[in-house]
């Protein structure tokens, strides 16, 4: 589904990713771990098409298509979803209205009829149970005044609604207490399917207790330094990142 070859990315003129290779197949959950400044969030944001992340080399194929050629919104409509580490607050834009617009943009892109208000509310009702999204979160402005936990739940809720082929969770566990973490993890687990791939970017092992990955990769200094199965995460938890860094210097967020 996703094939990253020798990806190099600059942020504000600084080389952060120095050649990343990663292959993700449908049905798989990959965890990308690494110390602060290793480049793991940069990888997530570059995949989502953030304008400040400049690709200086390599290629990314998403279902055989050149992902890097696509606008951020085309990527989303083609089925790439990123759950933000810091979801943006958007004053004055009603959350439900925004979700409906996003969903219909995608449906239109795929030649499906747009959902009307009734159909949409039905869908919302179905999906909101899973993440304990209440009516007030839907009627407020997007993320405005949401607590940290509400913001992350809202991200996963959007993911559940948009049903992406590839979901990238960027430090979704940061700032969550254990109850919120479980809620979010349940939401993500409910989305696991043989046709969907999930990339979980995280600093800590604890999210992986709840979302158990098929593969774990360690990023350090802008390079993949180790890949393995889910047991690698446990080893990292025990030993820290120091033994992998081998003198590779960290390079900023």
């Amino acid at each position: 589904m996703l094939d990253i070859k020798s990806l190099q990315v600059k942020v504000e003129g600084k080389q952060i990713l120095k050649g990343i290779d990663l292959r993700v197949n449908a049905g798989e959950v990959h965890a990308i771990m690494g110390p602060n400044g290793s480049g793991k969030s940069t990888l997530a944001r570059a995949l989502s098409g953030h304008p400040e992340y400049e690709v200086t080399g390599g290629e990314v194929l998403f279902e055989g298509q050149d992902l890097l050629e696509m606008d951020p919104d085309t990527r989303a409509r083609e089925g790439v979803f990123m759950a933000f580490q810091y979801p943006v607050e958007i004053a004055g834009v009603n959350n439900a209205y925004f979700l409906k617009a996003a969903l219909n943009a995608k449906r239109k892109h795929h030649g499906q009829p747009e959902l009307d208000a009734m159909e949409f509310m039905q869908l919302i009702k179905e999906k909101s149970k899973l993440l304990d999204i209440d009516q007030s979160m839907l009627s407020r402005a997007v993320n405005e005044g949401f607590s940290g936990g509400e913001k992350k739940r809202n991200e996963i809720f959007q993911m559940a609604l948009l049903e992406p082929k590839l979901a990238i969770l960027d430090e979704t566990d940061s700032g969550l207490d254990i109850d919120a973490l479980k809620l979010v993890a349940n939401g993500v687990n409910a989305m696991r399917s043989p046709t969907r791939a999930i990339i979980v970017v995280t600093h800590y092992q604890r999210l992986l207790d709840y979302i158990v990955p098929d593969h774990v990769h360690v990023l350090s200094g802008g390079r993949m330094v180790k890949s393995g199965g889910k047991e690698l995460a446990l080893e990292l938890e025990r030993r820290g990142y120091g033994w992998l860094e081998n003198g590779v210097t960290a390079v900023g967020a």
Partner: peptide
């Protein structure tokens, strides 16, 4: 810009995202 990117990352084309933000501003 962050708000525009956020809306685009959910599939809204740039023009639609911009329109949504301007309407939110005036709608108040």
């Amino acid at each position: 810009d962050d708000a525009i990117f956020y809306l685009r990352s959910r599939g809204l084309p740039y023009f639609e995202a911009r329109d949504m933000l301007i309407r939110a501003f005036a709608g108040d």
